[in-house]
Design a protein around this nucleic acid. Structure first.
Lengths: 131, 131
DNA sequence: CAGGATCCGTGGTGATACTG
DNA sequence: CAGTATCACCACGGATCCTG
């Protein structure tokens, strides 16, 4: 038999087309420009819209709103509106959202560990290609 | 002191802007539509261009070429050309590429585990939003 | 304060046709 | 066989202006 003793990527890509689709939809949620950073910001407690905007340097209000909506839709972040004037809105990570932090950290650590190696490869590749 | 006993997302986003940039560049390499699937396909051994194209259903020759080039540039995949007629080209994962498989599997497993929960959230959110 | 609406540039992706 | 070249589309993301 060809039972895998180690985890195999086939779990995600060789299985069904549907699995690949699911995996891609997760990756595109998580892999966009701001989602992971926002989940990271929220892990220490609820934050308001403007706080998030200030801490996440570079993000526009449009993208902040949009990204938070997506995360909310997927149940990774919860939104709470307070009927006050001026209005106050708080965002926090849900328990589901928290379970995502560990996997992301694994990837972040990989990136951190191998970034210089990758940079070197890119440099070498670009030099050889230009010539 | 505020030393973190648990891994903290700040490692990647609250640290420096540069860290966030590095992480994003990795995510965009890994998080695109085909990269992970291709690395997955290659983990059992070298494959030819056409084999990859056939196994990766839905991919166009253009995107297959492009994605493989990117992976090669980053040193995750190696390309070997044979001077034959008709031409033969084999692709294989590099050792560096292999180190990426585990982190990705972690994410894939997360996706697999929580997909139904996320789907439920989306459904609920969409229903409430339409109304 | 927390957004919504709108416009627009850019880049990723696909389809098609062609080539060494 | 293993690409390359070209065109076209559309989602992502930013900038700007407006609102309850």
């Amino acid at each position: 038999m060809e039972i895998a003793h180690e985890p195999r990527m086939h779990t995600m890509c060789g299985g069904s087309e549907a699995d690949a689709e699911v995996f891609r939809s997760i990756l595109s949620r998580v892999g966009d420009k701001w989602s992971m950073m926002l989940i990271g910001m929220l892990q220490d407690g609820p934050m308001r819209f403007t706080e998030l905007k200030q801490m996440t340097s570079g993000i526009s209000a449009r993208m902040l709103t949009h990204t938070l909506r997506q995360l909310e839709r997927d149940g990774l972040v919860a939104r709470e509106m307070f009927a006050e004037i001026p209005p106050r809105v708080e965002y926090r990570v849900t328990p589901l959202g928290r379970t995502l932090i560990a996997p992301i950290l694994v990837l972040a650590e990989w990136a951190s560990t191998h970034q210089s190696e990758i940079a070197a490869h890119r440099l070498k590749y670009d030099l050889e290609t230009d010539a």
